[in-house]
Design a protein around this nucleic acid. Sequence first.
DNA 1: CGTCTATTTGACGGGCATCAATTCTGGTGG
DNA 2: CCACCAGAATTGATGCCCGTCAAATAGACG
Lengths: 265, 265
Amino acid sequence: MHQSGLRPRPAPNERAAKATLRLRLRSQKRVRIMLNRDTGLFNLLSIRAQDFRNPDGPDFPLDQTRCTALTARQFREGSVMFRQNDPAEFLFEIISGSVRYSIMTLEGRRQILRFAGPGDIVGLTNEATYRYSAEVVRSCAIRRYRTDRIEMALERDVELKRRVFNSMNRESDMLRNHISLLGKRRSATKVAILLLEMEQSETTSCGRFTFPASRTEIANFICMSPETLCRKLGEFRLSKLIKMRSAQEVLILHREGLERIAANG
Amino acid sequence: MHQSGLRPRPAPNERAAKATLRLRLRSQKRVRIMLNRDTGLFNLLSIRAQDFRNPDGPDFPLDQTRCTALTARQFREGSVMFRQNDPAEFLFEIISGSVRYSIMTLEGRRQILRFAGPGDIVGLTNEATYRYSAEVVRSCAIRRYRTDRIEMALERDVELKRRVFNSMNRESDMLRNHISLLGKRRSATKVAILLLEMEQSETTSCGRFTFPASRTEIANFICMSPETLCRKLGEFRLSKLIKMRSAQEVLILHREGLERIAANG
DNA sequence: CGTCTATTTGACGGGCATCAATTCTGGTGG
DNA sequence: CCACCAGAATTGATGCCCGTCAAATAGACG
């Protein structure tokens, strides 16, 4: 559970952002370090264009392209960022919140591909249109880039380029992992792996996490019926492997047990 | 079992590579066109470093970094390019042949992720080690880049950068598609989709294609038992949807029929 | 032709999807 | 505060698809 206060501040407050910047700059004098961090998404927020110099590359000021990217936008829960086959005009960088990727299958069912969070970059594609849909699950702060300017931006912003690159790799990693999960024959195995993965992806991994969606959607995600998912969760609860405060909140009691099931069935 | 002859040919034959080059240059005089094509992977093979100019970018001669990439290596059938968790020292660009990606699951089964072909770039990762194994299915010509030099190479070679970027996107696309396939409940649906996809990925798509691997491996790829795969292929053959010259060669007779099954079951 | 492996076919049982019914939960209004 | 309702989550019952084991056939290679 990403604590209370789920939604980010409604209007990106310029002054507040600057304050944060100053703070960061004061607390860490070496700007170079902030820029090199892969997940350090806030770094650019507090630096005015004319003050910024890229420590890793040639020394040019922020250009127009870069400035457009600085405006962080809000997406509220349930809103659709884009749909599959929409023209791919923007690239989105998630700062906070979480997003669901899905595609339409040939027979018209929706298949959920993954849940993305802070640091993920949404909407990358070779094609002129998006290859999947993205919907907001928990209200998001998102930075937006115009696709037609992204090449230029990438040329100049080494750090952004690195983030994009990393995000693409992470995306592939997650998809590969998910394929591995879907290959499991027994649904108990699938569920066990799911639980372990969700717990690990939580920033504060102390054996607790919250499902980012309803039973039906989680079931869709791991390609099984909601009833079976339910039953397996029930079995796990009975055998004291997990505990649930509500339908969404999971507490892992006996990780080794889950791992054994994940590793064999 | 990873067959014998695991390692690639000890010394890549320089003369053979050059011969290939000359041939291609004679048949296609317009080098510029070859360089602009995304999949035009043969272009660099036949050009000596000092003759090469990049038509899309600043006009600098090939540097040391680039020259290392020019040597195309041969991998013979069955050889292992790298294994999951090996240190990620190289990046491979497939020029011809085909490669199988796989990962080891928690219980020690191998899960085949995809079959890659010309134009695909193998071994990209954020991490210090490879996230999956790559094995040669059909003998490959492969260009190799040192990971620790790749950043420099990408800086300078716009065309290579584009190929890497496109390859990553294609990778994600394929994985997403595959997740969609794996989500299908009925195995007939899975097989139908598989057939249609394999036929489409064939360069000369005239309703014929060859399975890149054995039944067992194909079955592993789409996560079903070889027996079921067999049975479904048998059913399709009986209902005149496909025809098979051998166990690997498929001819699609009635595409609409397959599409109907793919779309509904 | 003989051997070995890959592929195909047969028979069977279990696990999961499906449909249906019930309980749980959160929100709303009297 | 309680009744009420709608949607989600859970539990029950049933049928069938597919994985498993086993056997037979086909194909590859020397």
